[in-house]
Amino acid sequence: MATVLLVRHGRSTANTAGVLAGRAQGVHLDERGLEQARRAAERLAEVRLVAVVSSPLERCRETAKALVARRADPPPIRTDRGLTECDYGEWQGRPLKELARERLWKTVQSQPAAAGFPGGETLAAMQARAVATVRRHDAAVEAEHGPGAVWVAVSHGDLIKAVLADALGSHLDHFQRIHVDPASISVVRYTDSRPYVLGTNTHEGSLAWLTPPSRSPRRSRAGSTGRRRGSDAEVGGGAGPG
């Protein structure tokens, strides 16, 4: 079972300007956004990362670079358009306070599964491509690096919320109940039986516990609890990471 860390890009110049950036080029991290990305990197310093996959937009690529900048042996950074921002069409580049007066705004808030942006894509289509992209990379990471491998997907707020909603088994109409801040880290582990959401919108604390400890050959056959870690849920909640 590989584990994916869903990292939203740090605060951007569009975030501070109150503009819906969408897929516009030239939107970069601001000074605070760069610091947020560096703090996220510190939280991941003790995690063995095998891959980083980023949205091709600048603010995500800058965040991805900050995440691995101080690593002695950084994993390669790849980009995938499947992780790019939602195509907001005619909404792109407009102030959020102006968009909030549009009739479509209420649909986006209360019934996002029915929302489609003029000249852009629907939120349902955005979720489908985002989930498919994350699951495809997750399967490839596990096939190459084995169970226990940890990788990072750097993307955008609505995409990460949509992926988390899918992992939680929640309808897209409920995805606005999930909050994803700039440079926050959410954690999902996919298994044959179901996804497990290990954390959402986290800001503080080391994530070193995600890297499985090295075990002696004798212990590795059974695992630290005397059995293999499977894809079944622990009845009662289990003992947590070792």
Rank of each mutant, 00 (worst) to 15 (best):
R194N: 11
L164Q: 09
G22D: 11
W209E: 13
S170A: 15
D192N: 15
T211E: 04
H171L: 14
V197P: 02
V108M: 01
G146K: 12
P95N: 00
G169H: 10
E85R: 05
H171R: 15
I77H: 00
L198R: 09
V47P: 05
V108H: 02
G226C: 01
P195K: 01
L44A: 01
A41E: 05
R129H: 04
R94C: 03
L6R: 01
Y88H: 10
V150E: 10
A41C: 06
S216D: 13
H179G: 12
P217G: 08
P213Q: 07
V163Q: 13
G22N: 09
V47N: 02
N201D: 12
N15A: 04
Q92L: 03
V68D: 00
A153V: 06
E204F: 14
A239N: 08
S206C: 09
L159R: 12
V134Y: 05
V134A: 08
L99Y: 04
I178Q: 10
V7L: 13
R81S: 11
K161V: 08
L20M: 14
P118H: 02
R103E: 15
V52P: 06
T63M: 02
R78G: 13
V141R: 07
P147I: 04
E85Q: 09
W209M: 12
A153M: 08
L159K: 11
R221F: 12
R23N: 13
G199L: 11
R228C: 09
G146Y: 11
A183I: 06
L104G: 01
R219P: 04
V187H: 05
G116N: 09
L207W: 06
R78V: 01
T13P: 04
E234H: 10
D87N: 11
L5M: 10
Q111A: 14
G238Q: 02
R219T: 15
T211P: 05
L20K: 12
I185D: 04
Q25P: 12
A14F: 13
Q111G: 05
R32Q: 13
V152W: 02
T79W: 00
K97C: 06
E121H: 01
T225R: 13
E204N: 13
R94P: 05
G236Q: 03
R48V: 10
R70S: 05
R32S: 11
L198A: 07
W151Q: 09
G237D: 00
H179T: 15
L44Q: 03
E98A: 12
A64L: 03
A72Q: 10
T191A: 08
A183V: 07
G199F: 05
R71I: 00
Q92V: 08
Y196L: 15
R70T: 00
R38H: 09
M1I: 09
T133S: 14
R194H: 15
R101V: 06
E62F: 01
A69I: 00
L20G: 11
T79N: 00
P118N: 04
H145M: 11
A21C: 11
L159G: 14
P212E: 09
R59K: 05
R129N: 07
E58N: 01
P56G: 06
L34Q: 14
R81H: 11
